[in-house]
């Protein structure tokens, strides 16, 4: 394998930066945009409400 000439298709592709890949992926953005408020706002809030002691 040592001295085989490299074809154009075998050249490494330019790596796309992580942020670019994130911004170009609408479904990953949708996932983040739903999960963050669901966890930080709704689930955390509901957990706090469930811990309020009931009046006797």
């Amino acid at each position: 394998m040592a001295d085989e000439p490299r074809t154009e298709s075998a050249l490494p592709l330019e790596r796309i930066p992580f942020m670019q890949r994130l911004l170009d992926n609408p479904f990953m953005l949708l996932f983040i945009g739903v999960v963050v408020p669901t966890v930080v706002y709704i689930l955390w809030g509901v957990m706090e409400i469930t811990q309020i002691p009931l009046a006797k």
């Binding site: 408020p37 706002y41 809030g45 409400i49």
Partner: peptide, 25 residues
């Protein structure tokens, strides 16, 4: 992107005087 991450959380300002939710939240 900052909107996607954080904008919806501003909903909490309607609950800032609710005694049942912590100051941390």
């Amino acid at each position: 992107l900052l909107y996607i991450f954080f904008l919806q959380l501003a909903s909490a300002h309607h609950l800032l005087v609710e005694p049942g939710l912590s100051s941390e939240w």
